[in-house]
Simulated scan of single mutants.
Amino acid sequence: MLEKNKQNSDEKDDNSKADGEDDKNLKNLIQCSSSLSNIKTSLSQKKRNEGEANVLKYEVDEDKKKNINTEYKEERIDNIKDIERKIGKQIGGELEKVRKAGKATNSYKEKAVKTYENIAKENEDNKENKNTVKENENTVKKSED
């Protein structure tokens, strides 16, 4: 009876650990989704800024030919370059988050596979034990007859 109670409490602990792992895995998947969404937004902003910078560069070239002051446009190009560097860092940070979450998810998958393999092995062992018990019962019944 005590052994059964201990097994039940061990199973509850294992289940709560598995639930905790499931929660972590879900958080990792949500983090990946959020990070990928942030990356997508950052890339579209970066593309828009690159377009604006290209237009400004063309306008600066044309303005210089006409001897027009290009100082404002050149400052804006420099600002856009700074923004692009920041976006690049943001994208790098988000990719790092995805990489870490992916590693955690992979380790979770490996643990899950091992757990399922152990459960399958235990089930096979239990089946063998049940078959052995049945064979012994049949042998006893035959000897009694």
Rank of each mutant, 00 (worst) to 15 (best):
M1D: 09
L2E: 15
K4A: 10
N5P: 00
D10R: 11
D14W: 06
N15K: 11
N15Y: 02
K17I: 03
D19T: 06
G20P: 00
E21H: 02
D22R: 12
D22T: 09
D23P: 00
K24D: 13
K24S: 08
K24F: 05
N25L: 09
L26D: 09
K27M: 07
N28M: 12
Q31M: 10
Q31A: 14
S35I: 09
L36V: 04
L36R: 04
S37L: 05
S37M: 04
N38S: 11
N38D: 06
I39M: 03
T41P: 01
T41W: 02
S42K: 05
S42Y: 01
K47P: 01
N49W: 05
N49F: 11
N49H: 03
E50V: 08
A53E: 14
A53K: 10
A53W: 03
L56N: 10
K57T: 08
E59W: 09
D61W: 03
K65C: 00
K65Q: 13
I68R: 15
I68L: 13
N69S: 10
Y72V: 10
Y72H: 08
K73E: 15
E75I: 06
R76A: 01
R76M: 09
N79Y: 05
K81R: 14
R85K: 15
K86E: 14
K86M: 07
I87F: 09
G88Y: 01
G88V: 01
I91E: 03
G93L: 02
L95S: 03
E96S: 03
V98R: 04
G102T: 10
A104Y: 07
T105D: 10
N106L: 13
S107Y: 13
S107D: 15
S107C: 00
A112M: 12
A112Y: 10
Y116T: 03
E117T: 13
I119H: 03
A120L: 06
E124D: 12
D125W: 01
N126H: 08
K130T: 11
N131K: 13
V133K: 15
K134M: 07
E137G: 00
N138S: 11
N138T: 06
T139I: 10
T139R: 14
K141S: 09
K141T: 11
K142E: 10
K142C: 00
E144K: 14
D145V: 06
